[in-house]
């Protein structure tokens, strides 16, 4: 690890100011991706801006129609939240499947969403539920937030403060874990709302994406059988030493069916 300056601001505007004034500085939330990167000397930001002292970034609230999770809320808290379990059990289940216990205790929802790892779990939940990413400056709809491999709509100096999830009728997540990393080789989140069904896939490509044919089919009939015959195209899907694109495409269908099963159970 190379030397860096360390800042621990108490207010969001202070954090945003540091972020814009120190070129190449990085925000650190749980640090579950950033710290290993620093240890391997693959990144050497001049300064880290630790978000852990910022007020009002932790915790979960609801207003009946939505559940809002503070950006610095760890995965383990979301997984164990009675509120999330009651309102969006599929999201609590997703949080319980991230990484391992150490990662779930340190890692945060804001960090995961901002990082937008192509195999992370939360992007599937955020996109699948059509959530709103609340930042220090504005609100961004999930459909416009994720821009592919580690890219998001966040502007320089913009900090995620919370994610606001609409409460669905039903939702479920099914994840096929990569054997070694236990990231999603393929993860599928499905959510049923009054105006239709959303299906979001992580792990299969360079970033989280929706599957309109499955959404249409499930909107007609929210049952695994409705999508059993739908195969997604392998174009744009990842091939690596763990899985070729056609296997990932197959797993999308299998995991989508299992996500529907989970939502129905």
């Amino acid at each position: 690890m190379k030397p860096f300056a360390y800042h621990q601001p108490g207010r969001i505007p202070d954090a945003a100011k540091l972020l814009t004034s120190i070129e190449d500085s990085k925000l650190v939330a749980g640090g579950m991706t950033l710290i290993p990167t620093l240890k391997q000397r693959l990144a050497s930001p001049p300064a880290l801006i630790d978000l852990s002292r910022l007020e009002n970034l932790k915790g979960i609230t609801d207003d009946g129609a939505t559940v809002t999770i503070g950006a610095m809320t760890p995965h383990a808290v979301v997984a164990a939240s009675k509120l999330v379990q009651a309102k969006i059990p599929g999201l609590a289940a997703l949080a319980s499947m991230i990484g391992d216990p150490a990662v779930r205790i340190r890692g945060t929802i804001g960090g995961s969403v901002a990082n937008n790892d192509p195999a992370a779990d939360y992007p599937a939940g955020v996109l699948g539920l059509g959530a709103t990413v609340v930042t220090s400056t504005r609100e961004i709809a999930a459909d416009g937030f994720f821009r592919g491999l580690f890219e998001t709509a966040l502007e320089p100096g913009e900090i995620i403060t919370a994610i606001r999830f609409p409460v669905p009728f039903k939702a479920g997540y099914a994840k096929f874990k990569a054997p070694a990393s236990r990231y999603a080789l393929v993860g599928v989140f499905v959510a049923k709302f009054a105006d239709g069904v959303r299906v979001a896939v992580t792990g299969a490509g360079s970033g989280v994406f929706r599957v309109p044919p499955m959404e249409e089919a499930l909107s007609q009939n929210f049952d695994p059988s409705a999508i059993a015959a739908i195969r997604i195209d392998t174009d744009g899907l990842t091939s690596d030493i763990h899985a070729e694109a056609d296997y990932r495409a197959h797993l999308v269908t299998v995991m989508a069916k299992r996500a529907v099963d989970a939502a129905l159970s």
Partner: peptide, 20 residues
């Protein structure tokens, strides 16, 4: 015998595999 390898074997196997 990884999942990917087994799945591919089943794709090429003599009998079709019912998808549940």
């Amino acid at each position: 015998a990884t999942p990917n390898r087994i799945w591919r074997l089943l794709q090429n196997a003599s009998l079709p595999v019912a998808a549940e």
